[in-house]
Design a protein around this nucleic acid. Structure first.
Length: 894
RNA sequence: GGGCGCGUAGCACAGCGGUAGUGCACUACCUUGACAUGGUAGGGGUCACAGGUUCAAUCCCUGUCGCGCCCACCA
């Protein structure tokens, strides 16, 4: 016999191991159409967090559902090398050992990262197993695998040949801590409290005249090469074309007219530092200004490209040289102090503004003039935008398409080179004189060089690696074997659904679209399901610093993977953030327990699958009603999953299991199950077994473990066979409408009796008869037929016909055409009963009034849809009848 | 500055033109032979606010307020 509760801890891991051993997750076994989901590859050295639990639960629910539907389901697993994140972790470790990657050297460092990967790389995939994720592990890929690396080189070389990857010298976002370029997306604005300094730049050759500029970065004046004013600004018109002398360097720089300058902002005159500001860079290009860098790669002052002139009262080279090598903040303070000393600091205002920071390093990003590799994202974006416009890819919720379009239509060149070591080395080799050879292999590059020079040349490979997202962008086809034309590629590209969070729409989703369309000529997926963020139960973002991080695995340990998964499904509405705490999971665990106990009840009552059972041949109304309700639950679950409404799917399962199967079916079935042996009981048992099987299959995508355990316990199939059992479909039910009508009446009858008894405080132990007045023959027959159930559930002792005169102390219930009398002499407070009936009457009257007001409105009758008018007329009639009967009941009370 | 989303019972959320719903919490009662991780019944909402459209608005439109997010922005 089943235990009293489901002991998840003792079965989850062995069930999972069993599935895996049996190859139950493997694609290529089902005859149906392929169904494919590509996992968003987690960081290989990461650990499972709540966001993973959310996204992977949803993906697993979808893949299990489709697999049961007979589709050839592939959920492609794998991990990402996560360049920056992983390199930072290992570097931090090295720092703890008083060493660094520079000291180790490239090769030894990479060796070390691979070691770290070997040591921690299995963690996340093991944790995915704990969740129950049915990934096809035999197909697991890693972005630095040889196959995927080959895809990366192929894509790089091809795009380079097509002119879509190129090398360029321009400003990039430079992260001084990582000492690498990063892309626009890896830059986050953060509000910083600082100051605006108003600084006087003396006008050349005009004693006493000066131009005041306002800046938040006074130290950059070392690299100024102009001051810009608006061409229409009368205040500065006379100065355009003249020069000012820069404090501290003594250099003369022109005053230029440029519409970039905003007369409303600051002083209307803006200092131009082309090598350290994106806007200034553009101004510099327009005016042919020099672009000296004054910061090195660690964002320290360097004067290598700056000329210094001694100018009395304005520039003292001895002071300025002391700035060399200072950090940005220190240099800023020193520069401000010196300007103040020189009387050039007009004023200082406090100022709060947004400053770019590196999303990984957290330090202030510095625009720096360097040579990098760029990808022409604009060209690649066009087809991706078109695919969404044409509906070949849809976002769910659709709202996200706007966000996608806004970014894609204004996309900037994508800086793809990183000055890191952990990642895909850029397949470019440099020869004599800076010549570049982009090739799939070194040999190929050497051949190119030899062809060019007529002799072998010494080549050196570009030291940089590619942005991690470059390889993730190829994931939907690189994992399937591309550039080989494998059968898997033909079968599983495009994938069906991509499930992910909105935070990587630009980083990843958009790049997969661009790369997939360019190299495969088709979209990488048809639907992009965007879910929200997991927050704590108070709606706060989870973070280590807040200490509110919930570990999904501890929830799995405590409540079981099924409970966590079911809670996640219940909470996942369209695109909303979800608030998940232990309480939610505990509630879901109660549901798992409820299911378990419903099964236990079935087991105790001889419910077992009957081979050859035909639902269409079932006769008992209770059984027909149950089968019909199950059909409805299946339809709801299917519709919900089709629409990616995991909350509705979970809700349909929950309501059917708890409110239909447990609350009514099991209770109404008890008299039969506990009664005499015979065909009626056999039919009930067989029907219950059939429907329990439906419930287990319906719930399997959300709660795979408990359902599989019960499936096996009841012998629905061989061990571990639920995962590939056929998904339930609607069965034929004879007389479904009549059964719905009859059971609907039974439920209302029992509920009405219970309500009155509870309100009248009738002791549960006391059974009372029910006397029918004005009952139709059908009602009278039903009341007799369901007497056993009514006795169990409504404490009804017998059903009789009401005498002409009402016995004293009777409670009265109006139910459809009939009035039920409950003689409870001595228990009924006449005043209380009168008050109760009056309340009922008031409710009915209110309803009647509302409907009448509508029907009295000529416009309503004339303009509303006919069925709405009819519906209201029917409601009015019903309310009138109810009021009449309640009036009669009140009159009988005296 | 531009854009998006959200504001429905104490809490978490559905609903989104035609009688306001679910779960938890709450109150009362119940050791009823699956389950107290249970059962039965009940109370609780001018659907943020103000206008408009409509026969009819929680639902559509406009505006206001509050909350959150994204993009841009270092004068």
């Amino acid at each position: 016999m089943l235990d009293k509760t489901f002991d998840h801890a003792s079965v989850e891991q062995s069930l999972y191991a069993g599935w895996e051993r049996a190859g139950a997750f493997a694609a290529g076994q089902a005859p149906g159409a392929p169904y494919t989901i590509m996992i968003p590859p987690p960081n290989v050295t990461g650990v499972l967090h709540m966001g993973h639990a959310l996204t992977f639960t949803l993906q697993d629910a979808l893949i299990r559902w489709r697999r049961m539907q007979g589709r050839d389901a592939l959920w492609q697993p794998g991990t990402d090398h996560a360049g920056i994140a992983t390199q930072m972790v290992v570097e931090r470790e090295l720092a703890g050992e008083q060493t660094s990657r520079q000291k180790l050297g490239r090769e030894a460092f990479l060796e070390r990262v691979w070691q770290w990967k070997a040591q921690s790389g299995g963690a996340i995939t093991q944790q995915l197993r704990r969740l129950g994720a049915s990934l096809d592990w035999q197909r697991e890929r890693f972005t630095l695998d040889e196959g995927l690396s080959r895809a990366v080189r192929e894509v790089f070389v091809t795009l380079h040949e097509q002119g879509l990857i190129y090398r360029d010298r321009r400003l990039v976002n430079w992260d001084p801590k990582l000492q690498s370029a990063i892309s626009d997306l890896e830059v986050e604005s953060q509000e910083v409290r600082g100051s605006v300094w108003h600084i006087r730049y003396p006008v050349e050759g005009d004693d006493g005249l000066h131009l005041t500029v306002a800046t938040t970065r006074p130290e950059t004046l070392l690299g100024d090469t102009a001051v810009a004013v608006h061409p229409d600004d009368p205040r500065y018109a006379a100065l355009v074309g003249r020069h000012v002398v820069l404090p501290l360097t003594g250099r003369r720089v022109p005053v230029v007219a440029d519409t970039y300058s905003d007369p409303e902002k600051g002083t209307g005159a803006v200092k131009i530092t082309p090598a350290h500001d994106f806007n200034d860079f553009a101004v510099g290009q327009r005016h042919g200004l020099p672009m000296p860098s004054i910061l090195d790669r660690q964002a320290r002052i360097t004067l290598a490209e700056v000329e210094l002139h001694a100018v009395s009262g304005l520039a003292d080279p001895d002071f300025t040289r002391t700035l060399e090598g200072q950090g940005r903040e220190a240099a800023r303070a020193a520069v401000v102090a010196e300007l103040d000393r020189l009387g050039l600091l007009e004023r200082t205002e406090p100022n709060t503004h947004q400053v770019p920071h590196g999303d990984r390093s957290g330090v202030v990003i510095e625009p720096l003039l360097t040579e990098q590799w760029y990808c022409d994202a604009k060209t690649l974006a066009g087809p991706a935008v078109a695919a969404v416009e044409q509906g070949r890819i849809t976002f769910v919720p659709k709202q996200w398409e706007n966000t996608f379009f806004a970014w894609m239509r204004d996309i900037q060149p994508w800086c793809i080179s990183r000055q890191l070591w952990w990642g895909h080395r850029i397949p470019a080799w440099y020869g004599p004189g800076g010549s570049v050879f982009v090739a799939r292999t070194q040999a190929e590059a050497e051949a190119q060089a030899a062809a060019r020079y007529g002799a072998p040349a010494a080549l050196e490979q570009d030291p940089d690696v590619l942005d991690t997202w470059f390889s993730s962008g190829l994931w939907p086809f690189s994992t399937l074997g591309w550039p080989e034309r494998t059968p898997e590629l033909a079968r599983h590209y495009p994938s069906d659904v991509l499930v992910t969070g909105f935070d990587i729409i630009f980083f990843w989703v958009a790049r997969m679209m661009m790369m997939g369309l360019h190299f495969m000529g088709d979209v990488p997926f048809r639907h992009v399901v965007i879910h929200g963020l997991v927050r704590d139960e108070r709606g706060q973002k989870m973070s280590k610093s807040k200490g509110n991080v919930i570990d999904p695995l501890s929830l799995v340990d405590q409540y079981g993977a099924d409970a966590l998964r079911f809670a996640v499904c219940q909470l996942t509405g369209p695109g909303r953030d979800i608030k998940l705490g232990a309480a939610r999971v505990a509630e879901a665990r109660s549901f798992v327990t409820k299911l378990w106990n419903a099964a236990r009840f079935c087991e105790m009552n001889g419910v077992a699958p009957v081979s050859g059972f035909d639902p269409a041949g079932v006769r008992a109304p209770l059984c027909r009603w149950l089968l019909d309700a199950a059909n409805q639950a299946v339809a709801e679950a299917d519709a919900a999953l089709e629409a990616f409404r995991f909350d509705d799917y979970a809700g349909a399962c929950y309501r059917f299991t708890w409110n239909v199967f447990c609350d009514w079916f099991v209770e109404l079935a008890k008299p039969v199950l506990m009664g005499a042996d015979g065909p009626e009981r056999d039919e009930l048992r067989a029907t219950a077994a059939h429907v329990l099987g439906t419930v287990l299959r319906l719930l399997h995508p959300a709660a795979p473990f408990v359902t599989e355990a019960l499936w096996e316990a009841f012998g629905y199939g061989e061990a571990l066979s639920l995962i590939r059992a056929p998904w339930p479909t609607a069965c034929t039910v004879s007389g479904a409408a009549a059964a719905r009508d009859e059971l609907g009446w039974v439920i209302r009858f029992v509920t009405a009796v219970r309500t009155v008894r509870a309100e009248m405080n009738v002791p549960p132990a006391l059974k009372a008869p029910v006397l029918l007045r004005d009952a139709s023959p059908q009602t009278a027959a039903r009341a007799q037929a369901w007497l056993d159930a009514a006795t169990r559930l409504g404490r009804v002792s017998e059903v009789g016909v009401a005498p002409a005169s009402v016995p004293a102390g009777c409670a009265q219930i109006v139910l459809d055409e009939a009035t039920l009398l409950l003689p409870l002499a001595g228990l009924i407070d006449l005043d209380a009963e009168r008050a109760r009936l009056s309340r009922e009457r008031a409710r009915a009257t209110d309803d009647l009034e509302k409907v009448r007001r509508k029907l009295d409105n000529a416009d309503f009758v004339a303009r509303a849809k006919a069925d709405v008018v009819d519906e209201n007329r029917e409601r009015a009639r019903a309310a009138e009848r109810e009021v009449t009967r309640l009036d009669a009941a009140l009159a009988r009370l005296g």
